[in-house]
Simulated scan of single mutants.
Amino acid sequence: MTTPQLLMIEDDQRLAQMVVEYLAQSGFAVTHAGDGAGGMAALERQLPDLVILDLMLPDADGLELCRRIRALPGAAGKVPVLMLTAKGDPMDRIIGLELGADDYLPKPFEPRELLARIRAVLRRRGEGGLAGGAEPARGLRFGSLEIDRDARTVTVAGQAAELTSYQFDLLVAMAERAGRVLTRDQIMEAVRGRELEAFDRSIDVHMGRIRAAIEADPKNPKRILTVRGVGYVFAKQQD
């Protein structure tokens, strides 16, 4: 089995050392960068399986760094980002998710929770995000929308739609259940890993990002519809 490669961008040396040692004992290889410049240099050398990104760095804003990571060639939607922050404001969490973070963990945190979240994100990425043992279709197509599960890509009318790893899994989970109204809890269960934190607003944020990527008019969606008071439904009939 290949050892998962992680990159931790964190200026707190003591915290970073503790996390690196703990994750190493759990089977992960972790590269540590103490600032944004070092983190970007490491990313340009080699893309890891996951980035652990501190929101507050001495030389860079973590939110801006998340944008830059998403803009790296080959990184969009394929390198999950787990954001760490000392800030507890839910708005910071929402902004982080809107900018492309796959998960969010406030400081201080238990190393076991960080480990569980890392495993959940990587599991979603490796399994394609569907619960259950049935072998899913290799590709999904709804009008001009095409989802390639193997390549983990989405195109609309031949144009690539940029989604994070978690957003891709959300889209696949809903597309596999086209026509079925899903509650937020059912959506979180379908992609797994969100049992750690029932944060319904995160689903709404991600749905907004998915709509922006795949809808002709995100404010008047035709593919992912809101069912007021219940959740969402992926429309069977599209363009």
Rank of each mutant, 00 (worst) to 15 (best):
A24H: 11
Y22K: 09
L43N: 07
E21Q: 15
M40D: 02
Q17W: 05
D49N: 14
L53N: 05
D59T: 03
V20S: 09
L53W: 05
L47A: 14
Q46N: 10
Q17I: 01
L63W: 09
I52M: 15
E10F: 06
G62T: 05
D61G: 08
V51Q: 07
D12M: 04
L50A: 10
V19N: 09
A29C: 06
H32P: 05
L55N: 13
H32G: 01
S26H: 15
A33T: 06
V51L: 10
A29R: 13
I52V: 15
S26C: 12
T31Y: 00
P48Y: 03
A42V: 05
M18L: 15
I52G: 01
M56Y: 09
D54L: 05
D11K: 03
E10V: 06
R14W: 00
L23D: 08
R14M: 12
E64N: 09
D49P: 10
T31I: 02
V20R: 13
H32Q: 10
L53P: 11
E44V: 07
A24N: 11
G27S: 10
E21S: 15
L47P: 04
L53Q: 12
S26Q: 15
D12V: 04
R14P: 00
Q17M: 11
A24Q: 13
A16H: 02
L53Y: 07
G38P: 05
G34T: 14
L63G: 13
E44H: 12
R45S: 14
V30Y: 00
D49E: 11
L50S: 02
E10K: 06
G34P: 00
E10L: 07
E44G: 05
